[in-house]
């Protein structure tokens, strides 16, 4: 499959990444190289196989829904780029 410039920019927008004009060709070439390599999977007969979901055979792992105290709230807030009264601060989202 060939990736177009418009598609690349659409995907980058979905991923919240900005690609500068001068970087577009490089991204397109790199992406295309890797996608071309994966073409070799098309020659494999995979019809009979199930997908592997997760790495091991265990399915759902349940635990009791119990509240546990985390003892280092200051440590969490200390990493906030911007905060106010012990809350994370973000730009205004509603006008």
């Amino acid at each position: 499959m060939t990736v177009s410039k418009e598609e690349l920019l659409h995907i980058a927008n979905l991923a919240d990444i900005k690609i500068k004009d001068e970087e577009i060709d490089k991204y397109l070439n790199n992406l295309q190289d890797i996608l071309n390599y994966t073409e070799l999977l098309n020659s494999m007969n995979l019809d009979e196989l199930d997908e592997t979901i997760g790495a091991n055979d265990s399915s759902n792992v349940f635990r009791k829904d119990e509240i546990a105290q985390f003892d280092n709230k200051e440590g969490i807030m200390a990493n906030a780029p911007e905060k106010e009264r012990n809350m994370f601060k973000i730009p205004k989202v509603l006008n």
């Binding site: 690349l8 995907i11 979905l14 991923a15 999977l41 494999m44 997908e51």
Partner: peptide, 30 residues
């Protein structure tokens, strides 16, 4: 990192999921 995020977003995006991700998960079984 950006290259891989974009490749990952691409293979999971609408229209390409079966061609890439689903196929890769089958290869994993193989």
């Amino acid at each position: 990192v950006k290259r891989r995020i974009i490749l990952g977003t691409y293979v999971l995006s609408s229209g390409y999921y079966d061609a890439y991700y689903k196929k890769a998960q089958k290869v994993r079984t193989y």
